[in-house]
């Protein structure tokens, strides 16, 4: 396989790697934009980072320079930092609000901005004592 990698056309490898990385990145972007569960949002950001890594390593391979690989290594260390902080923040949000809905984070808005709920939550899923049910009742 090593010889196959050496003999493979660098331009073809670059293009295939860039295509794959772009698709993976955009999949993660769609997930991060659309999903409401905080854990799934963090996972979607992880998918985006995988796409960036594939892109950078493709360019690194094309130019024969280790710069892209080093940048990927540093990005992954930063991603670990992101995961550590996100885990603690998600746990705090769950302790305070009782669920993992990103709509709960609307409380960190400035006081001058009105609170809005993106979509109406199905009432059958909400117990009476959650933060979100109080918020919906207040909206009504």
């Amino acid at each position: 396989m090593v010889i196959a990698v050496l003999f493979a056309s660098t331009l073809a490898l670059l293009q295939n790697g860039l295509l794959a990385g772009s698709i993976i990145f955009c999949l993660g972007l769609i997930g991060a934009l659309s999903r409401r569960n905080l854990i799934v949002i963090i996972l979607s950001v992880g998918v985006m980072i995988q796409g960036i890594a594939v892109n950078l390593v493709s360019w690194s391979r094309y130019h024969g320079d280790a710069g892209g690989s080093i940048l990927v290594a540093l990005i992954f260390v930063t991603a670990i930092c992101k995961a550590i902080l996100a885990s603690v923040l998600i746990k705090q949000a769950f302790v305070r609000s009782g669920n993992l809905d990103s709509a709960n984070w609307q409380t960190i808005r400035e006081a001058t901005i009105n609170r809005t709920v993106d979509h109406e939550i199905p009432l059958r899923e909400i117990s009476e004592d959650t933060f979100l049910s109080k918020l919906i009742r207040r909206q009504r």
């Binding site: 860039l18 772009s22 934009l33 569960n37 993992l100 809905d101």
Partner: peptide, 29 residues
Amino acid sequence: LSSSDLMTNEPLLSTVAGSLLLGLLLISI
């Protein structure tokens, strides 16, 4: 499943935005 798992924020707009970006990236590549 909780309520945050059952719904998404603007799935149409999110998909269109991501697909536009993907199309531009693929054409550039």
